[in-house]
Design a protein around this nucleic acid. Structure first.
Lengths: 254, 254
DNA sequence: TGTACATCAGTGAACGCGCGTTCACTGATGTAC
DNA sequence: TGTACATCAGTGAACGCGCGTTCACTGATGTAC
């Protein structure tokens, strides 16, 4: 509990290097304690019923004390959103790094990352829903969430462009026409730069399909529809990879 | 307001033919008034903040009076969910019927239905989120929602099988392997019956992608990512149709 | 190293609000004879 | 057609609960000299 310094939330704009004073150290710890308690509560009751008072209660402090650390309930929610995006992004990044280190092909990296992200979602359904489910009414996500939200997308883009560079991905021939120009923001196109027209749009679509497939399952729409959800997800993500032409050499036969 | 008899919610198990007495007629009308007021409120504040008291207030009645019509808040929510599924299903059905009547090809029917459903979602974001967004915590959807939930899926399945019957759809060759057997529930396979192995699984995946694309946009994840959301959606659904081999003869060039 | 002052963390009470649900009751509508 | 009784709709008060946020205050920690 003492040396956990992997996170740098301080609750203030303090320099990230040295918690000089005892006060500063206590502040860092308590900020972490609060977000952790909030995360636990989120996991139980969902974002809509997340309550500052209940968080304070769990920590044995007055509800007003929480305001020394978060200016409002919304700010606490924002912290949880950022944390969730980061956790998902880190899962994706680590999974892909491991796969690369093991010499996996791009399609296998794609498979691994999809599974890892889905596993995370199943393990943390309310946190997942907080970021990829219906927006919390009356809450507007601030700018802080933009970068963490992009981490997972960046991993997928890297896999797609790596595959393209090796000649194992591209816009399949004989398919739907290319998209009109300038559909995407420049940042997004840049992620897939050099991979030719239509590739970025397809890459984005695979991302959307991944999130969509997880949501569909998590939100209960596969009940009475799919019997073997694990296998169906794996197959669906393989099939989605067709969009990027990543399965020329044949997937596993069933 | 008097002759609107297209719906048959009575709030009781009364016979659907004749509202004999004045009481029975009043009950039908008030039940409808309540669900409409609830729907208006849902559109404003979202499902999480839907309040029986506020609904009663809007109708100028005591909050306890609502309990003569709905046994609990959950039951009111269920009615709204059923209504939303029905509205979406009806939109899909009507759009497809119109397209068929106009002699549209399956791929054009698919395009039309996708657009119509997306338009509905954009026009009714909170109702959409109520059925396809994160589940409301502490609420378990009862069996009543199963049939209405399937209406839209049935439309999509019909389009796919029609295309297959005409030879303009099928599992594309040279793609990912077929799925293992028995992934899907028998009911679902039956919807695509006769169209060969893998076809039902792919059909389901297009459905998931449609819902996922709409959710992704509606929940704000295309901000700073896609500039032209209308065009991107149209293109994405065209590209999704590749999964069913529905674009052999080339889509519109960009 | 020691003192004087400023800063900060945490408390507990309060404000003002809204919620779902129950219950005894009144008055109107429906039904059986 | 008229009366007696049963059913139902709607009221208003109440129960018990929880929430976010503010504020004046106490006591501890940090800082400047």
């Amino acid at each position: 509990v003492v040396t956990a310094s992997s996170e740098d939330r301080t609750g203030t704009g303090s320099p990230r290097s040295a918690p000089r004073t005892a006060r500063a150290r206590a502040r860092i710890e308590l900020t972490r304690d609060i977000t952790e308690a909030a995360r636990r509560q989120l996991a139980e009751v969902g974002a809509a019923h997340l309550s500052l008072r209940a968080v304070a209660r769990e920590l044995g402090m007055a509800s007003s004390a929480v305001y020394r650390y978060f200016a409002s309930r919304d700010e606490l929610l924002t912290a949880l959103i950022v944390d969730a995006y980061d956790a998902i992004g880190e899962t994706a990044e680590r999974t892909d790094e491991d796969a690369v280190r093991a010499g996996a092909s791009p399609i296998d990296r794609w498979r691994s990352v999809c599974r890892a992200v889905r596993d995370w979602a199943i393990a943390h359904p309310h946190e997942w829903a907080l970021v990829y489910g219906s927006p919390v009414t009356g809450y507007a996500a601030p700018q802080d969430t933009v970068v963490p939200a992009g981490r997972m997308a960046r991993v997928l883009a890297t896999i797609a462009t790596d595959a393209h560079d090796r000649g194992t991905a591209g816009v399949p021939s004989g398919t739907a026409g290319p998209p009109p120009d300038d559909l995407l923001a420049a940042d997004v196109t840049a992620l897939f730069d050099g991979a030719g027209p239509g590739f970025a749009e397809r890459g984005l679509l695979t991302w959307i399909s991944l999130i969509g497939a997880i949501n569909f399952e998590l939100f209960g729409h596969l009940h009475n529809v799919v019997e073997a959800t694990d296998s169906y997800f794996d197959w669906a993500m393989d099939t989605t990879a067709e969009l990027l032409g990543m399965l020329e050499s044949g997937g596993a036969a069933g």
